[in-house]
């Protein structure tokens, strides 16, 4: 059985990042790479040995981005991009958050966005008392067709009910503003 001897290569190499909100330190110092991986087996090894997102302290994030892209909008490969954002209310963390995050990761590493997979930079889950957030980051917010197709695919893969609308925000609109005031460029 070849599955038992050969690791299955991924199209991309990915880095998993952890952010812990320590106000005594600079924002960038709170952001660390946990590890990088480029095979299916190494992904599962990592996933199975890290704390589920729902068990992280409030203020923490996990991010999984293509190797070479930092999980911040200032990165050259994110700057012109944006994110599809799924807001969860407090009661959704226990039943849904870990499943949603895993499904997002499977779409990323499996190149689940078909011909638009090159538009993907990564994904982030933010654990927050007021409500967790899951974001799928793309590299160019001006690519309307790609952005919309990615949103549709994300919503479908995560089994988001049709009546729930998810929005896409350009990082250039988000930078320096409170979340509630940012307009959606697209919704699906």
């Amino acid at each position: 059985d070849p599955d038992s001897v050969i690791k299955h290569p991924l199209q991309n190499s990915w880095a998993m990042w952890f952010f812990k909100n320590d106000k005594t330190r600079d924002w960038k110092d709170n952001l660390r790479v946990i590890t990088t991986f480029d095979t299916v087996e190494d992904f599962w090894g990592l996933y199975n040995h890290t704390l589920p997102a729902s068990k992280l302290q409030s203020g923490c994030d996990y991010s999984v981005f293509k190797a070479g892209i930092q999980p911040m909008w200032e990165d050259a490969q994110n700057k012109k991009g944006g994110r599809w954002l799924i807001n969860l209310n407090k009661s959704q963390r226990q039943p849904h958050l870990d499943d949603l995050w895993l499904e997002t990761l499977l779409c990323l590493i499996g190149e689940g966005f078909d011909e638009y997979s090159d538009d993907i930079c990564g994904a982030t889950v933010n654990i927050r008392t007021k409500g967790d957030k899951l974001g799928l980051w793309t590299r160019d917010a001006s690519r309307n067709d790609a952005t919309r197709k990615i949103g549709i695919k994300l919503k479908e893969s995560l089994n988001v009910p049709p009546k729930i609308v998810i929005g896409f925000q350009a990082h250039s609109d988000t930078a320096g503003k409170a979340g509630s005031t940012v307009k959606n460029r697209f919704t699906v």
Partner: peptide, 18 residues
């Protein structure tokens, strides 16, 4: 070149392989 693609079921199957 060809893109290396895995669907959900294949990734889940490989989760449980030795």
């Amino acid at each position: 070149g060809t893109r290396i693609v895995y669907d959900r079921s294949r990734l889940m199957q490989l989760r449980n392989s030795p």
